[in-house]
């Protein structure tokens, strides 16, 4: 008798919690989940959504909501968002598409997908460019670029969480060159470039790839004045840079998905709403649907 009563109680409790989970409470405070200061994903996200803005002194300031939940890693963002129906976070697209525990929302009505990033309609994405002065003439630089755009090179790009730009890229065959290749520029592109450099050196043992992270603008300038054989920029080239002879080539695209719990009925947010949430101007889900 006693056991049956306990069992009934347990069942009732499960039913209550189940019901609580099923109904989404829009009056709940939005639990904003952000990456830590210094993270490349956060840097790209705040820049593309406008969470980063000029302050009174004219300097870029990160206005991420102070009450956000700060976590240090893509997987923790996903776990946190998955476990809280009122949460919203962001993570690189490649890590989200393979994960069913969270749902990515449309931004400005555009779904976060590889296709939409490649056709430039998804707003929270930026190209990772390599920059040369005109067509590359140096044999070593040409061969390295050929490697980056090859099947193996694009695999490295995908391994780093970027959307590869070439799908049916040809296989790379080492040309047996030697020397040192100096690549410099964007700090965001540098990590994937290090990976590419290592993979390239593994195939061409006599080539050393020296990756210097100085910033996108310095990368373009360096490519133009010959400091770098190849420059790196985590943005599209400016008109003035193209006029000066800089030639950009996208090696991969960094896409960031805005994610919520699958229990959250929100399907679509505008870029402005995303900004409002992440700076703390809008704090409840109900306020958002007005």
């Amino acid at each position: 008798m006693k056991i049956r009563r306990i069992l009934a109680l347990v069942l009732a409790l499960t039913a209550i919690t189940g019901a609580a989970l099923a109904a989404f409470d829009a009056s709940k405070t939005i639990a904003v989940v952000s990456r830590e200061e210094g993270s490349g994903t956060r840097g790209a996200f705040i820049e593309l959504t406008g969470v980063q803005a000029k302050n009174a002194e004219g300097k870029d300031q990160d206005y991420t909501y102070a009450e956000a939940d700060f976590v240090n890693g893509t997987s923790l963002v996903i776990t946190t968002v998955a476990s809280d129906p009122a949460a919203i976070g962001y993570a690189s697209l490649s890590s989200v598409v393979v994960n069913d525990s969270v749902k990515s929302v449309k931004v400005n009505g555009v779904e976060a997908s590889t296709e939409n990033i490649l056709n430039n309609t998804y707003p929270i994405a930026r190209p990772f460019n390599i920059v040369t002065k005109g067509e590359a003439t140096d044999e070593l630089a040409k061969d390295f670029i050929a490697f980056i755009m090859s099947k193996q090179g694009q695999e490295e790009v995908a391994n780093d969480g970027l959307v590869p730009v070439a799908n049916d890229a040809p296989e790379y065959k080492p040309a047996g060159l030697k020397g040192t290749l100096v690549v410099g520029g964007s700090t965001s592109v540098a990590p994937v470039m290090e990976l590419l450099g290592e993979a390239y050196s593994a195939l061409n043992p006599e080539v050393e790839v020296d990756v210097q992270s100085t910033g996108s603008s310095a990368g373009v300038t360096g490519a133009l004045d010959g400091t770098y054989m190849i420059g790196m920029a985590s943005r599209a080239l400016k008109d003035s840079e193209v006029e000066a002879g800089a030639l950009g080539l996208a090696i991969g695209i960094d896409g960031i998905a805005v994610i919520v719990s699958p229990e959250n009925p929100t399907e679509d947010l505008t870029l402005e709403q995303v900004r409002q949430i992440f700076v703390g101007e809008v704090t409840t889900w109900a306020e958002l649907s007005k």
């Binding site: 830590e36 200061e37 102070a66 009450e67 956000a68 939940d69 700060f70 976590v71 240090n72 923790l76």
Partner: peptide, 18 residues
């Protein structure tokens, strides 16, 4: 602690906040 504290780099006063 890093997993449960919210890790907000601002003065903590509220016991229910990060």
């Amino acid at each position: 602690i890093i997993m449960v504290a919210g890790n907000n780099p601002r003065m903590p006063f509220d016991i229910l906040k990060g």
